[in-house]
Design a protein around this nucleic acid. Structure first.
Lengths: 135, 135
DNA sequence: TTATTACCCTATCATTTTAGTAGGGAATAC
DNA sequence: GTATTCCCTACTAAAATGATAGGGTAATAA
């Protein structure tokens, strides 16, 4: 299940991408427009900024803004920052690999075999979509 | 993230599919072989039986057994029973559809657009795999 | 300089989900 | 009848999730 954090984060990015020009947009405005708890959104935007997706400006007329072109923001990186691993089990994760406690042999594991395919198919989708494709 | 319930369920099904003949296999044996808490596995096998994947026999020499050929058990049905919806958001789910509280217009929603693709790609994998393909 | 705006950051909390445990009941084989 | 093995309900500990509270700090406008 997709977390609200990711869902809200994606919506916020989309909203910012649609804004004319590059003027900062206030948290409150995004929250209101997308029906999101303002405080919750605040923490999400913060992690997006810390991870290089957004810039921010304080004081009057401040807010958040994209620091890259939407077409240069692939969904793989967005998903990994907001949702975490794209794989459904750590033993098939490219960026968050971990061995299973049970499971003596990954090569023999049916779950491993299936989840590898699921990971690859999801990756293909995320790689083929940038923020620009969602507008 | 894939739940342990689904993971263990898949492993148990695989184990049963590998058994020579169709003699019942005891919970304890599966649990031991796959390093699963026996009581937890018990509840998983129970739901698999209730959903038409397994048969069971009580008393000495009893246990669980597959009641279909592995090639006739598609991963779509296994995943839906064990893990729930294949879609990551209810608004793109075929079998568990639900409208989002926020989101006035699904057609305009960027999350919807992306998650539709993810659902379809996952579905394709699950449809192309039966239990027999995991052996 | 001073007030205001708006982001920054930590801590806390209620709820839900997950993973696992406990314990007795019912059917079957011998 | 007794041992075995599945059946079923209820409970619980821990973690994750979604959200809230509340003050701090930097930038800006006047």
């Amino acid at each position: 299940m997709l977390s609200k954090k990711t869902k809200y984060g994606l919506k916020a990015l989309t909203f910012l991408a649609k804004v004319e020009g590059k003027e900062p947009v206030q948290i409150a405005e995004i929250a209101k427009h997308e029906n999101i708890s303002q405080k919750f959104l605040e923490s999400i935007l913060l992690t997006l900024r810390r991870n290089g997706f957004l810039g921010s400006k304080k004081g009057k007329g401040g807010g958040y803004y994209l620091i890259k072109e939407p077409k240069d923001i692939p969904m793989t990186t967005v998903m990994r920052v907001l949702e975490g691993p794209i794989a459904m089990v750590p033993c098939v994760s490219l960026n968050f690999y971990e061995k299973c406690d049970d499971c003596p042999d990954e090569g023999e594991c049916s779950v491993h075999k299936l989840m590898l395919q699921v990971r690859d198919s999801a990756l293909e989708v995320y790689r083929n979509n940038t923020l620009a494709d969602l507008l």
